[in-house]
Design a protein around this nucleic acid. Structure first.
Lengths: 312, 312
DNA sequence: TCGGATACTTGACTAAGTCAAGTAAATGAT
DNA sequence: ATCATTTACTTGACTTAGTCAAGTATCCGA
């Protein structure tokens, strides 16, 4: 259900530039391996065999992009040297699963160490924070290009607020509403004030925050604040555009409602604006009723504010 | 002056995983080129020649990691086919600068288009926001690995606050002070409240913000707020750890001081804590005098707050 | 049961790259 | 000024790494 978009020339050029850059980078890293007894491809095959079990020749050819004939000979050579062993697969006499023998592991060890040390040296030139950024960026690239719709096992998880979340939520809400509805910087400021006050006067017994995290990134949040013994207020519900459609918004509201019920509040209230249609649907589905509407001029726009209530 | 840090095993493994992943990725992309009349290396050479002027054989061999002998023959073949031309370099008779001839450009065009289209197709599978993230992540990788101290031409630039900055500054200050000094989430909350209030009651005539940006990223900021006709307050000075040593902190304070002078304030005041030593040095250098100190318990720590004043 | 696929294997090739040795020019040290 | 060293290629001799096509055995679906 993702919306696709024709890429601009700058993006294409940036990706091509990166491809050229990384072609060279890999070339540099591979130079180190070349003085070993194994060719680059042999090393790649050994790596795969060392890290995965039950591989067949076809698996290897597919995953490494090798010619089956070439691979066949390569494996034969390995077998003759006692580096690998082929075991028949009972279900299919054509295939056999290939495994490293002890001699193979021994032959692979120095290659592996060489590659490990080389990467360690590369990273060592960077400050720790830059190492982190590098790894994160690489994982992003890998996930976006490789993932190919491979959804994470846990679509998202909920946790309470941590240091750094407040700023992140302020920023994302500011940017998203500016982009989608043209709201000005005073909305971001409002979110900052609300969250600043929330943390400052936070009462864990009566109040709570839920942060939705997906693959380590914040993708949504909601806050429940105490207005009185009887009334709690749901504030700042938001879901990242990239994480919409996973039911995160509904889940966040549901958590709020259960928490409010469990604490014995009688009413859960919230304020929103009529243009926020998808949020409205979630509130309606959760049983909220529209209590009142009023026009106001905020965030540089003419808006219609709405109060919604849920009797618990 | 960057601090280096021995990389952990997970980081090394993550980088190696990425290398293997991208080796395959490049292999896939190169398959497209292989059916052309040119080999992969020939295509790479043509690409370089098409995009850079005045290259010599040595430049090409170095940048593409090629064997000089191989390259020599390759260029000779290109020259015979009329694809490139070698011009003597007057200063050095050993070298000659290699340039694409019209026939070379013509031969390169379909290759270039093929590669372009392939990348376009790759990107096309992603949503626009993911395309953006991909490109950003690639640029991060490239900068961190390739940059190798290649400093940007403009080390940083100053601009006023934009939407998204408030949240970013809140987050970064929250994280940095939590990491460096163990301050709890109430500091982040305080920053959020201060900035929320700043934006809300912003008076452009008497107040101002300066955001330091380096390669598109926020790396520092400072705010000047009006306390009275006579007194202005400097607030929330911060510089990203990765951007320290560039004089950004000093510059931000200097901007504040000039602005305060230009607006006719008599006193510039600020509040800080004694443990923030590098900030203190900047204030002293700018002529601020320590006015008073008081102990307080904030952000989960026992601290010594300080008020500094500068008579303008 | 039979017409494809699939999972290799083998033979025949060669493009692509390496390595070492050589030439001519430049550069640096005396 | 000169001479050893380095740089910028070039050339010859070689091989490895990889391709392509054809073949065999097995499996799978209608």
């Amino acid at each position: 259900m993702t919306i696709h978009h024709h890429p601009g020339k700058e993006r294409i050029d940036a990706v091509r530039a990166f491809n050229r850059f990384y072609t060279r980078q890999i070339g540099l890293l591979d130079e180190g391996l070349l003085k070993s007894a194994f060719s680059l491809t042999e090393a790649r095959v050994l790596y795969e065999l060392a890290h995965r079990d039950g591989l067949t020749a076809t698996d290897l050819a597919r995953d490494l992009g090798l010619d089956p004939g070439y691979l066949s000979r390569l494996l034969k050579k390995f077998e003759e040297r006692g580096l690998v062993e082929r075991a028949a697969i009972e279900a299919d006499a054509r295939r056999s699963s290939i495994a490293l023998m002890p001699a193979g592991r021994q032959a692979f060890a120095p290659l592996n160490r060489g590659s490990h040390d080389q990467v360690a040296a590369l990273l060592d030139r960077l400050a720790a924070s830059d190492q982190d950024r590098l790894v994160k960026a690489m994982q992003t690239v890998q996930r976006l290009l490789g993932g190919d719709g491979a959804e994470p096992k846990v679509p998202y998880l909920l946790r309470p607020l941590q240091v750094g979340d407040v700023g992140w939520i302020v920023r994302r809400q500011g940017l998203i509403y500016a982009q989608d509805y043209g709201w000005d910087e005073t909305y971001e400021a409002l979110v900052a004030e609300i969250l600043g006050a929330f943390v400052k006067s936070f009462d864990p017994k009566w109040e709570r925050s839920w942060i939705a995290e997906r693959e380590g990134e914040v993708v949504g949040s909601v806050f429940l604040v105490r207005k009185s013994d009887e009334v709690a207020k749901l504030r700042l519900l938001y879901v990242e555009p990239s994480a919409r459609g996973l039911g995160i918004g509904k889940r966040l509201v549901d958590e709020c409602v259960s928490f409010a019920r469990a604490r014995g509040y009688r009413t859960l209230t919230l304020w929103t604006n009529d243009i926020l249609v998808s949020a409205r649907r979630i509130y309606e589905a959760a049983g909220f009723k529209l209590a009142e509407e009023e026009r106001h001029h905020s965030f540089g726009k003419d808006l219609v504010g709405q109060n919604w209530n849920l009797e618990l």
